[in-house]
Amino acid sequence: MREVFHKETDLHNCTGVLLPGGFSYGDYLRAGALAKMSPIMPAIKRFAEQGGPVMGICNGFQILCETGLLPGALMLNKNLRFISRSVGMRVENSDTVFTKHLWQGQIVRMPIAHAEGNYTADPETIRQLEERQQVVFRYVDPVRHDAPNGNPNGSTNAIAGIVNASGNVLGLMPHPDRAAENIIGSADGFPIFLAFAEAAQSATRVEHSF
């Protein structure tokens, strides 16, 4: 694993790209808007378009939407507040490279920490996302599994995470990185990282077979 700085212009033969959370450029203008102009972004775009696995968490998800690698946008939370707490999510599609170690309908818990996580897209895009099972995670109340009650930020259809049409780009607002070990309260994020690592490894194998 290596870190690639945003001012670099190539990915040094990385076989998987993780865009972490945080507040790139202070979230000025719109969350992720200035980051999309970073020198590294064209390389990430090419990598994603060639089918490489890309995962964006929180600010990473916002950047992926801003660059157009994922459809839609993340607007200000409905209650206008920064929300930092644990949420429940239902796995809506376990048949992706990122979710294959989770099961369909599984309820996972992980924290959110964002002010702009209110997923929005035009009705036609939402319809397509639902129809093609690109909605991978949906907020639910972790105790009573009814969706509206568990929606923390006003996201359309309580959408918490989506994949692109070809399934190699995942974006989600909750933090699997902050839920990857039992000692920090939840290990539900671990299977996502395991799957991501496997996807990156198999991407290496594909590259070597050329």
């Binding site: 203008l29 719109r30 459809p71 929005t120 897209a121």
Partner: peptide, 9 residues
């Protein structure tokens, strides 16, 4: 178009 506005919203 590229930066100041997000055409989605």
């Amino acid at each position: 178009d590229k930066l100041l506005a997000n055409p989605v919203i």
